[in-house]
Computed example of a mutant assay.
Amino acid sequence: MSGGSVTSPAVIELSGVDVFYGASQILFGVGFSVEQGQTMALLGRNGAGKSTTMKAIAGLAPPRRGSVRLNGAETTRQKPHRIACAGLGFVPEDRQVFPQHSVEDNLLIAAKKGPDGRDEWNLERIYEAFPLLVPLRQRMAGRLSGGEQQMLAIARMLMGNPSVLLLDEPSEGLAPIIVQRIGELIRTLRQTGVTILIAEQNMHFCLGLATDATVIDKGQIVFKGSIAALKANDDIRQRYLAL
């Protein structure tokens, strides 16, 4: 065995990803990786390509060119349910709870073991981690506030015991107290060793949560580095993240 530093394996890896919606190209050669246990912030203005990148990873916007790999396995052409079974959990920007079902039914619908047989997240643990949902367990999900729906969407995703979490704009449009709770939850999840990719316009929300940042603008990656490097780079923050 040779010496030297050992890097963690890439859990999510994109290489040269082009995505089109019809004739319109949205992503242009997007490439970055997220290592095991990392919390990566994918930052950019509205319309920069964050959500499309998340959908490309989840199989909902298959790339026309390039590759997506999950835990080393090619997933570029796989169906979304296959990618989910491989350990990917995705909370989309619009949450997509089942409005005519109760909170508890929304959770039970998503219950499954992880790809390695992990079964850490069940109803009991969810209600411990999300005490806000306990008094709402029989309420129809369509009658929840935006913040409650966001909590439910994250909880439902965890019921699938994923090893990789994609959170698309988790703080968008929510009251500051709910944003704070979601931040605390992400910190707790980080400590369990899961790999997290957060797409956000709100850089300040991510600064205390993420270890690393990738900045996207007009469908192209314009910065990759640590959160500390992003904080030190006034030019990138002013050009691509200033609202």
Rank of each mutant, 00 (worst) to 15 (best):
G146Y: 07
A199I: 02
G59I: 07
G3S: 11
R237C: 10
V91E: 05
G47L: 09
R64E: 13
K112T: 11
I198W: 00
I216G: 00
P135N: 08
G160E: 10
K112P: 05
G44Q: 03
F98P: 00
R237H: 06
P62E: 06
Q100N: 14
G49T: 00
A110T: 10
P170W: 05
G208Q: 09
E124Y: 08
Y21S: 13
Q25M: 14
N106E: 09
R156D: 06
D212Q: 12
G160D: 11
K224R: 15
I221T: 03
A84C: 07
G66R: 08
Q220C: 14
V30F: 00
P80A: 03
G59C: 07
I57H: 00
Q220R: 15
N202F: 11
G219R: 00
G44S: 01
K231L: 12
L207K: 02
T192G: 05
D212P: 06
D94V: 11
Q138H: 14
P131R: 06
G49N: 01
G4K: 12
S145W: 10
R95Y: 09
A84S: 09
S171T: 10
G219W: 02
V30L: 06
K218E: 15
E124K: 13
E148D: 13
Q180S: 15
P92G: 08
R95P: 06
A110M: 13
L185I: 07
L197N: 01
I216L: 05
A10C: 11
G173V: 03
Q38A: 07
G193V: 04
G44V: 01
R118T: 11
G173T: 06
G31A: 09
G208E: 10
P9A: 14
E35K: 12
L207I: 09
V30Q: 02
A229M: 08
K224E: 15
P131L: 05
R82V: 15
L123P: 02
S51P: 00
I182T: 05
P170C: 12
Q36F: 09
R45N: 07
F20W: 08
Q38Y: 02
D212V: 06
